[in-house]
Nucleic acid binder design. Structure first.
Lengths: 337, 337
DNA sequence: TCGCAACGTCCTTGATCGTGGTCATGCCGC
DNA sequence: GCGGCATGACCACGATCAAGGACGTTGCGA
């Protein structure tokens, strides 16, 4: 392996000068232009790369950020990850992705990345082991940002406006004349779901429609669970004429249930799906969706974490831009009575 | 941060003893049972964790493996990643996941993980920048394993039997009496696609059916491309009665095209999709699929790479167990024409 | 039985990995 | 002789390991 010494020898200078060239002369080391060029030439010739271990050891920072999401293959999280990655790349950090399943308490990965200095901070979008992980991080005083509605404690969060998103879906359907609008899916945990429910209720209230608790099914994100919940809703005495599905990853379950009952979309039932994906275009029926600034939230979460690591003060933040947008793919129709 | 020195001081021994306790006395240092217990106690009391940077620097190995896949959110790759992760976790390694998009030549991530000693090796399942990356790795003599059909060069590969998988799909349809079976999707690059094509042709040959080039559409993995190809096939003068779709992630494109044409599955057209996923159960229509040992291939790729890193001799390997299996979800019917 | 060397056990010391920052030194012009 | 600039020697970062030291035990010959 070529080290900084090899480069120094080749350029005929000391290692301090090479170090200064690499870092853009951040110390008090000055050098002539000629020297700098000679060093840069030597770096190119030898293909020298800074040794990551030595650098982290010396600086006590690794330039690696861990990102923990509940499920890596979830395309909505992929958007968030893409945002985090873009921001990290720009700053020069590397993202260490982990599925929440991998970091269950006591897992090897958890103990390898926490407390060993392997990562400078953690981006946490995890429902599963979120609390245990957050506690562990706090105990070891490792900076972290939670990608989710803020929790009661004083940890830092970055989140998107679920209330506004669900509210937009409801408003769209109300505008088409629907009055019995069901809401199916969504998290089982209390905090986040209440935001979604709030958005739904506010939209109804604004339209002067009475809230009916029986039209709400918060059953989590597993397609089979959504299928069951959807069947129950549609099989009830007074079925809804429209459906808001939270969210797009599990929507296949709801859609399957609808088609299995012989109902047509949007003729017999209008549906709007919360969260948008490029893949929605090739789903059949193609669902109208609400597009949220997920990628932007990922970027914001990273920049917030970066500021924390740099010792600057940060606040939790709600990401509202671009504003939620309804993407119409024709899965909704005016209420036909 | 607590270091090995703190632990040593607390236990009243030198750092070398602590190091020996941690590593299970791999060096030439012996100690009494009492001393070992005292040290272990001190480690527990202080919550000490080995500093990753210092350890990597000293041992010149990081215990981190990079895994590069074309698209992280691809659920088939997720299976492979899960296999890699399980195997890595068992050995004590950490996986650094990267989307191929992130490592385009000259990207920051690429230069950070290659040549800096940040990772001990790379698992490469990448079509996009695969060649450039492989070259770079070879140049820097970083061990890597390619998760794909072997290439002409002498790099190490681990792959699954695409020929057998596609062959199984074809055989199933042939057994139902179909004679005009189309094959749509699949990679655009030559090497892998020929294996798939071989499987298809062998199955036809075994059944005494003539190969018809016009029934093959190798158009890559984008759903819209599959939709177009499927429309062309079904709109031709002599349309197929059955369709093999490669693969499940892009299958939505083909299925959308079929439904858009007003055709019913399996009444008007039988389809089998290559590669299986849990999510296939909630797709509508639910496709019959061919399940491949993808996760096992991921594990095998990791263990192979691990052996390379440890300096042992390895060979490319075809993962055949469990054997490809056809999962019947009712999307195929006997030939009625 | 005693003395001394040889040996074994348990542990410590010090060098080392590659970087980065501090500080001292040398040199130049004035 | 002095200020300022360019440069290089040196040490710390934390963990590991080879070398070796302290101490006790054993073996063996006198």
């Amino acid at each position: 392996m070529t080290t900084i010494k090899d480069v120094a020898k080749r350029a005929g200078v000391s290692t301090a000068v090479v170090s200064a060239v690499i870092s853009g002369a951040r110390g008090n080391v000055r050098m002539s232009e000629a020297t700098r060029l000679r060093v840069e030439h030597a770096i190119r010739d030898t293909g020298y790369r800074v040794n990551h271990a030595a650098q982290s050891l010396r600086l006590s920072r690794s330039g690696v950020i861990a990102a923990v999401v509940p499920k890596i293959a979830n395309p909505v999280f992929e958007l968030a990850i893409r945002g985090m990655h873009a921001a990290a790349e720009e700053h020069g950090d590397v993202l260490l992705l982990a599925d929440a399943l991998w970091i269950e308490p006591g897992s090897h990965l958890m103990s390898r990345i926490v407390g060993t200095g392997m990562v400078d901070g953690v981006l946490l979008r995890s429902t599963q082991w979120g609390n245990e992980t957050a506690e562990e991080l706090t105990k070891r005083s490792i900076p972290y940002v939670i990608l989710q509605n803020p929790r009661p404690d004083d940890s830092v969060s970055v989140w998107i406006d679920d209330a506004a998103g669900i509210g937009l879906a409801a408003t769209h359907l109300l505008g088409l004349g629907h009055r019995r609008i069901a809401l199916v899916g969504g998290p089982l945990v209390q905090i986040a779901s209440s935001a979604r429910l709030d958005g739904y209720r506010s939209a109804l209230r604004a339209a002067g429609v009475r809230f009916d608790r029986s039209l709400i099914k918060q059953v989590g994100y597993e397609p089979p669970d959504l299928a069951t919940a959807t069947r129950e809703l549609l099989g009830s005495a007074r079925p809804p004429s429209a459906l808001i599905v939270d969210n797009i990853v599990a929507a296949s379950g709801a859609i399957a249930a609808i088609l299995d009952l012989g109902l047509r979309i949007p003729d017999d039932l209008s549906i709007v799906v919360y969260q948008d994906l490029p893949a929605a275009d090739t789903m059949r029926p193609a669902p109208s969706t609400v597009r949220m600034p997920v990628q932007q939230a990922g970027m914001r979460a990273y920049t917030t974490l970066r500021r924390m690591i740099d010792g600057r003060r940060v606040k939790s933040a709600l990401v509202t831009r671009p504003a939620p947008k309804l993407i119409d793919r024709g899965s909704t129709a005016p209420y036909a009575g």
